[in-house]
């Protein structure tokens, strides 16, 4: 059963076709890769899916509880509430806030007390803040960040900042998670841990994951299916094995050496 269907998605910046007639279909629970050379339009696809750009053309359809929902043209906060969460290629944490606050803010949309309660800290504030705190700490301990809850996000080492970004995305309670180069800048040990983490959170939170990544060992190891983007167009959509031997993909992106890796 598909959970997300992207049809003829197109985005042009002036004369530049950053994304051109892209079709993507995600099955529920799938872990899919999105690869391609720099400037191929991968991040732009994410920005289109999450509402940061309106598409020039095309449709984004989310299937939720048996109903179709068109996401194109909606604003990012609405799309987040529909269950799409993302991380950013160039980490975008709330740097001067604590680790705990980063996660709590992402849970804000589910908070059930009003402004008056926030002005006067009425009982509903106390009750809901406690729930919020407990839920945040539970998530942080899953991500092994609970001991750093009061640390400023900017003071975390690089790898942990990436993890915190994933934790923050999970805090929005998504059904689809979009990861934009989560392993960028990580050392091999960290990358190995990340790959376990991605697989594990997929099971634990019943996620469908779309993953942009340049680290081919990671992508080939964990993805069930891979889309390859080149000059804004999908040039392949196959399993990792077939991708490795796909002529066009090798020419456009992988190069000869990866095919025997």
């Amino acid at each position: 059963m598909p959970i997300l269907k992207v049809e003829k998605l197109t985005k042009s910046f002036g004369g530049l076709m950053a994304v051109h007639n892209v079709d993507i279909e995600l099955e529920e629970g799938e872990l899919v890769g999105l690869i391609g050379p720099n400037g191929a339009g991968k991040t732009t696809v994410f920005n289109l899916l999450t509402g940061f750009y309106p598409p020039t053309k095309g449709e984004i359809i989310l299937y939720k509880n048996g109903k179709e929902k068109h996401l194109q043209g909606l604003k990012p906060d609405i799309i987040c509430k529909e269950g799409l969460a993302r991380t950013f290629q160039n980490i975008r944490l709330f740097k001067d806030l604590s680790v705990l606050d980063n996660v709590r803010i992402a849970m804000h949309k589910n908070v059930k007390y009003g402004l008056v309660s926030s002005f006067f800290h009425l009982p509903s504030y106390i009750r809901e803040e406690r729930k919020l705190y407990d839920a945040s700490m539970e998530l942080l301990s899953i991500m092994k960040l609970d001991h750093k809850k009061d640390e400023f996000a900017r003071n975390l080492p690089y790898g942990e900042q990436r993890c915190l970004e994933i934790a923050r995305a999970l805090a929005t309670n998504p059904s689809i998670l979009l990861l934009d180069e989560p392993a960028a800048g990580m050392n091999p040990a960290e990358t190995a841990m990340l790959s376990d983490l991605i697989c594990w959170i997929r099971e634990k939170f019943k996620l469908t994951i779309l993953l942009i990544e340049h680290d081919m060992s990671l992508v080939m190891k964990i993805c069930e299916r891979i889309y390859v983007l080149d000059y804004g167009m999908v040039i392949a959509n196959e399993t990792p094995e077939l991708i490795k031997s796909n002529k066009r993909v090798i020419e456009a992106y992988l190069g000869e050496d990866v095919s025997d890796a």
């Binding site: 999450t50 906060d77 969460a85 950013f88 944490l93």
Partner: peptide, 9 residues
């Protein structure tokens, strides 16, 4: 940008 991506209007 991150704020709106986290569901905040």
């Amino acid at each position: 940008i991150a704020s709106s991506a986290m569901g905040i209007n």
